[in-house]
């Protein structure tokens, strides 16, 4: 790996992370507590504390292309135990938002699941588990995963075939639409 060029740290990236997460990255003194307790760490490329360190160094590329920002389960163990009360989970969330906005591929399954979930919410106003699973499977081609669970769930009446649609679906759809437009405005405003 090429050495990190300390002089080329992306100050705007640091500022954006700090503003969007409302956390002060300078407060982190790298004790490692967030990394120590993270239950998802075994799936990470960088540990939580390493990610914070990379943000401190303004390493946009390394952070936004990392697997870790997609695998965080937002369990808040890190935020709970941080001696400097940094909401680490919120920081990782914000990094994932940025990675999405900037078109990083990320973890495909995690991204597609979130997309399928939100699509279901956008269309019905509520999450329809069977429907979103179908969409997810179509996109990932993971037809057999969890298939064994379906019969019991169906039998117990826990997977309704039809979505529970709300009346004011348009209001929810509008939230998504405005969100999308707002994002477009952001980009038009020239903010990286």
């Amino acid at each position: 790996m090429e050495p990190i060029q300390l002089g080329n740290g992306d100050a705007e990236f640091i500022r954006k992370v700090e503003v969007e997460s409302r956390q002060d990255m300078k407060k982190c003194y790298q004790c490692g507590n967030c990394a120590a307790g993270c239950p998802m760490s075994f799936t990470y490329d960088y540990t939580a504390s390493q990610l914070i360190r990379l943000i401190q160094l303004g390493q946009r590329q390394r952070v936004l292309s990392s697997r870790a920002v997609w695998m965080c389960a937002t369990c808040e163990t890190c935020s709970t135990r941080c001696p400097n009360e940094i909401d680490v989970a919120r920081v990782l969330d914000v990094c994932r938002h940025m990675a999405r906005r900037e078109g990083y591929a990320g973890e495909r399954n995690v991204r597609l699941f979130a997309d399928a979930f939100l699509q279901s919410v956008r269309m019905n106003g509520r999450a329809h588990e069977l429907g979103l699973m179908a969409v997810f499977k179509l996109r990932t081609l993971k037809f057999f995963a969890d298939l064994s669970l379906a019969p019991a769930m169906l039998l117990k009446g826990k997977l309704p075939f039809l979505p529970h649609r709300i009346k004011a679906r348009n209001e929810v759809a509008d939230i998504f639409r405005r969100f999308k437009e707002g994002r477009a405005e952001d980009a038009a405003g020239g903010k990286p």
């Binding site: 790298q30 004790c31 490692g32 507590n33 990394a35 120590a36 307790g37 993270c38 760490s41 075994f42 960088y46 540990t47 504390s49 390493q50 163990t77 135990r81």
Partner: peptide, 27 residues
């Protein structure tokens, strides 16, 4: 070990100590 201990809990007559070694970046 350069790092923190996240949690200590009992298991049988032992204490499980879970932490991180930040120098290798692993739990």
């Amino acid at each position: 070990i350069r790092g923190r201990v996240s949690t200590v809990y009992p298991k049988g007559d032992k204490l499980v100590v879970k932490g991180v070694d930040t120098l290798v970046g692993e739990q």
